[in-house]
Design a protein around this nucleic acid. Sequence first.
DNA 1: TTCCAGGCGTATC
DNA 2: GATACGCATGGA
Length: 267
Amino acid sequence: MDLYTKGNDLILKQPDFDLDETLDCGQAFRWVKTAPDEYRGFFVNTPLTISCLDKKDGVFKLENTDEKTFFEVWADYFDLYTDYSELKKRYSEDKTLAKACEYAGGIRLLKQDAWETLSSFIISQNNNIPRIKGIISRLCVHYGGYPTYLQLSGETVDSLAFLRSGFRAKYIVDAVEKISGGEIDLNKIKDLPTDDARKELMKIKGVGPKVADCALLFGMYKLDAFPKDVWVKRALEQWYPNGLPDCIKGSEGIAQQYLFHYIRNNS
DNA sequence: TTCCAGGCGTATC
DNA sequence: GATACGCATGGA
């Protein structure tokens, strides 16, 4: 990571970072492509416009932010303190992962907000990415930003009908009730071992193993969480009938991102 | 029209 | 514990 100021812009030099592969690969749903190699989005409600000036050298322009916010928010969000070259080198001991890392070497894990991630992936179940984005967009337009669980407390299945989220509305309501009521504490869950944290999250209706693992991985940075959606299940059947390779141990979740993206775009 | 989507709750064995 | 089925919505 190398950050400097040029006029009114922040310039970031960062290898192993591709905007399309990272911001539009199904781990976050609120980044909007505003031009080729340019996205606008948020960490919760902190805005950023980011564009790539030089793909080969990994040069990015950050607008609508400042240096203080970069170090408080974005450096962590984009996981810039992790060496992805090193990670990919380790993953590439496995032949399939080597191909997946080569296919989309600019994927990074986004370290997102726990509540936004949990609620977004509740909405994601048995749903496709364009429609997930639509539901979350309607939610944010309605509240003028991504709503906290406190803002949502008091909403009902009927009052959330404008989302057109189908059967998922009742799950959102249950998550809001349990979290705003104190029955579930996301900050405490963050500090639990992954298996215990998963059990806690699954007390919420509509949160099963897959949604829980997405919240654990993307929202609580539990790297050993390994969400198994329909695509990853296909990848496991096709490439790993005898189990996952040892070279991903300790950061299974990041390897999962490469596999998810690879099989989704090559089948 | 039918099938599918970053699944899960419920019923049944 | 495993398996089968329904579920809201909308795009292909």
